[in-house]
Design a binder for these strands. Structure first.
Length: 424
DNA sequence: TCTGGGGTCCTAGGACCC
DNA sequence: TCTGGGGTCCTAGGACCC
């Protein structure tokens, strides 16, 4: 049976999450900001109507924010993650096959449900999600994931009902719709490819659907070919029912101000290593290699430097102290005096299940003991609030630390701020 | 002049996504 | 002054092997 995909996508997800807990924001212009309160990453409809784009730096639209009284929020990922879980749990009841594609989107396979009125079913999904979670969503329905994406986009942009079913759309109407969608708005077509396409006169989704497959293959490779075939209604990208195991875990963050000293960089890198270790342990994973990277501010006209170093761990680990040590070794090897660093990160690779770690014959570390310590720290931090107990290497003053000046309360997660430290 | 062919593994870089 | 973070996949090229 050929698939019928419904793409359910939350409207302005982060903004909607803020509104659920602060209904006074309803109908008013609202944005959510990226880390360091730097860019706009979620916009309410009112803000989109003002012509403020996605990803725009806040300082560029400061005047508009003031003029229109736009409410600004720092991102609050604990809240959004929690709301996402609620939405996905609700969607689970509507189809036997579901792929959680991102924090705010899921593909459902509606084939086999024997629904004669798919649009009506989608309306039911919308209403239920709204009622149970407070989050508004739109639904696009089509025979391929790429078309379902476009259907969803069109539902958001052109329809009043918030639902668009392409499977029953007459060919003429479908063509008209595709001719209204710019080629760069097609899923899988980014800025680099769309630049080349446009130079060739391929401007819209409709143009791309009719493009010469051989040329596409030669010029852009197999991925772009799949996109074109999917536009033609030929499903090439299957539903992924089981989230594939993670291959990397990363924590990286820009600093609130330039950092020049190795001492401060070490604090930041220790803090990121701590966080990435927590993420790994929480997922029951361990890493065989750690990469640390730093770079200067590419937007500034000043000496630029960026580098990365990978450290192999003799035994795959998720232990904070061990990962901090490895991160220090890497950082010390790439640090260069005389630059203003803007950002650093710690990336774990060669991820394996912690329960299946290959022991090392000559291992001198007491892994049992280290594991118990980590576990105790995780429990305490979960109970008392993140960062309650931390390694001294991550610093105390932390004036480099990313700023979240306008974060909403942690409505759905516990939090308090009693600091404590252990030596290390 | 002309210098095998085919396979695997690894890595870096580029492209994309939300 | 101020410019996000965390991922994935594909490809090309080099090293190495028989």
């Amino acid at each position: 049976m050929p698939p019928i995909y419904a793409l359910v996508d939350c409207n302005n997800f982060y903004v909607s999450c803020e509104r659920v807990f602060n209904p006074a924001l309803e109908g008013r212009p609202v944005v959510v900001l990226s880390n360091n309160d730097g860019c706009i990453v979620s916009r309410s409809a009112e803000v989109k109507a003002l012509g403020i784009g996605m990803g725009v730096p806040v300082f560029e639209v400061k005047d508009l924010i003031e003029k229109y009284g736009i409410q600004t929020f720092s991102s609050n990922y604990a809240l959004y993650g929690d709301m996402s879980r609620r939405v996905m749990e609700t969607l689970n009841g509507f189809a036997p096959e579901i792929e959680i594609y991102s924090i705010d989107e899921a593909f459902l396979n509606l084939a086999g449900l024997n629904k004669t009125n798919l649009a009506g079913y989608a309306q039911n999904i919308r209403a239920t999600v709204r009622r149970w979670t407070g989050i508004p969503v739109c639904v696009g329905i089509a025979g391929t994931k790429t078309l379902a994406k476009l259907a969803n986009r069109a539902a958001k942009k052109f329809s009043k009902s918030g639902v668009l079913d392409m499977t029953i759309m007459p060919a003429v109407e479908l063509d008209a719709l595709l001719s209204r969608i710019a080629v760069e708005d097609v899923w899988g077509i980014g800025p680099a490819i769309s630049r080349v396409l446009k130079a060739r006169g391929i401007q819209t989704a409709l143009d791309l659907r009719g493009a010469d497959i051989r040329w596409i293959k030669e010029r852009f490779g197999i991925v772009a070919v799949r996109t074109v075939l999917e536009l033609r209604g030929d499903p090439c990208i299957p539903l992924e029912l089981h989230r594939p195991a993670k291959k990397n875990i990363c924590v990286s963050r820009g600093f609130s101000r330039p950092v020049e000293s190795l001492a401060e960089l070490r604090e930041a890198v220790a803090a990121y290593a701590t966080r990435v270790a927590e993420k790994a342990r929480r997922a029951g994973l361990a890493a065989g290699v750690l990469t640390v990277f730093v770079h200067t501010n590419r937007f500034r006209d000043e000496p630029q430097y960026s580098n990365a170093a990978s450290i192999r761990l003799s035994v795959a680990t998720g232990d904070t102290a061990e990962l901090i040590q490895a991160a220090f070794r890497g950082l010390d090897s790439i640090f260069r005096e005389g630059y203003r660093y803007a950002k650093a990160g710690v990336l774990l690779g060669e991820i394996v299940q912690a329960s299946r770690v290959q022991p090392d014959l000559f291992d001198e570390r007491d892994r049992d003991r280290a594991g118990r310590l980590s576990k105790a720290m995780d429990l305490l931090n979960a109970d008392m609030g993140a960062g309650t107990l931390h390694y001294a290497a991550t610093g105390f003053k932390r004036s480099w630390q990313t700023k979240f000046m306008r974060r909403s309360p942690r409505y759905t997660t516990r939090w308090n701020e009693l600091p404590a430290v252990i030596a290390g």
